[in-house]
Design a protein around this nucleic acid. Structure first.
Lengths: 203, 203
DNA sequence: AATTTTAAGTTGACAGCGTCTACATAATTT
DNA sequence: AAATTATGTAGACGCTGTCAACTTAAAATT
């Protein structure tokens, strides 16, 4: 399927591998991801993906790079959509935007923090992550300049600010842990996100 | 190695599989875990572990069950060691105890939140998790009774309180993300943990 | 324009893995 | 003492990632 023509050379394989890989991760989880499976789905030979990704870890790294770019985009867009200049309003919106993205791309979100991804990271992945964390830290710095925890070192405050959406998403995405919080059943996702983020970045 | 004798029946295989499994996870990561590898290390045939664990996911679930028991033990011990009755002091100590445990058992900590673990959970795992989250929620409730965020629903406050140590540990354990916070290099682990937890549970 | 080089496919092989079935042996129950 | 059950072994199956050798199309060079 999805071969642009019956050519020997596919012509567009690498991007399609990435796309199909992201689909599989989102539909069946990261453990269901296999190079041979992707090749089958795309109608190419089992070893074709090796021409584009040195190994499975490299494919995972490429998917994570893409994920960091997308989560950064979603986070910054959430800030922009507030239409506000207030650093607290913007940072609060970023936290909610991050969590919303994590909810809508659960498996990819988990991929970003997957141990193997860090272990075989290349430059482009490091850059993508750096980009994301830099923009968050900038927003944290701006909020601190407005009087949010003025005496706490920036690194600590940034870690704390990141930890809440990351940790909360991690806990809520886990089916066992979320069902274990029966009090939370009353809230829908958006309400839940809002209340949690308001505890880290009060308005 | 580590066969109690040259008997046909090993006599103590299941616990040794668990122990060796935990070692491998901690030394080489969760992806290096294989039933055949454990069997080799223990000097038994490749299919012997299947007599004790229905499949690999079941072994993972058993390891996670053990992990939840241990992290609960470490967390409650931290509270006890304060020698205080003040709910805030105790909750603060629990957060630090949790993070300390996560730092010292990185791979096992990640195993607790691994997607496959949740997917193939059995009753004992659910119970172990329930036990842990219940004890945390009790401590959160006590702290709320002392005036900590009195108007926030307990479920939300509990989620927030858990999210900080979980998220912070997750971020710091990731080699790429932690090296990206250069401001944090100045702190040693214990200092870092203290400052972050003080933001969620101020003393 | 012809030729060479390189990029991107294919096929086949290899070892390692999880898991199943059939069989062997020891421990436990009856 | 005999039967049953628990726990080991051996072998097979299909799956996986990865490599080497070969083929074909596209790009670069002459």
């Amino acid at each position: 399927m999805s071969n642009t023509a019956n050519t020997y050379h596919h012509g567009d394989l690498a991007p399609q591998i990435l796309q199909r890989g992201a689909e599989i991760i989102d539909e069946q989880g990261i453990d269901a991801l296999s190079l041979r499976g992707i090749a089958r789905d795309l109608g190419v030979s089992h070893a074709a993906p090796n021409r584009h990704f040195k190994n499975k870890a490299a494919l995972l790294a490429a998917l994570a790079t893409d994920g960091w770019l997308r989560v950064k985009e979603a986070t910054l867009r959430a800030a922009a959509e507030t239409g506000s200049e207030d650093p607290r309003v913007r940072l609060n919106a970023m936290g909610r935007g991050f969590m919303r993205w994590a909810f809508n791309h659960r498996a990819l979100f988990r991929t970003l923090l997957h141990p193997d991804v860090a272990r075989f990271a290349d430059d482009s992945l490091v850059d993508a992550m750096q980009d994301f964390t830099d923009s968050v830290r900038d927003a944290v710095r701006a909020s601190q300049a407005q009087g949010r925890h003025p005496d706490v070192p920036l690194g600590i405050l940034s870690l704390y600010t990141n930890a809440v959406p990351v940790g909360a998403a991690m806990l809520l995405i886990n089916p066992l842990l979320s069902s274990d919080h029966p009090n939370l059943q009353a809230f829908d996702d958006e309400e839940l996100i809002e209340q949690v983020i308001n505890l880290v970045v009060p308005l």
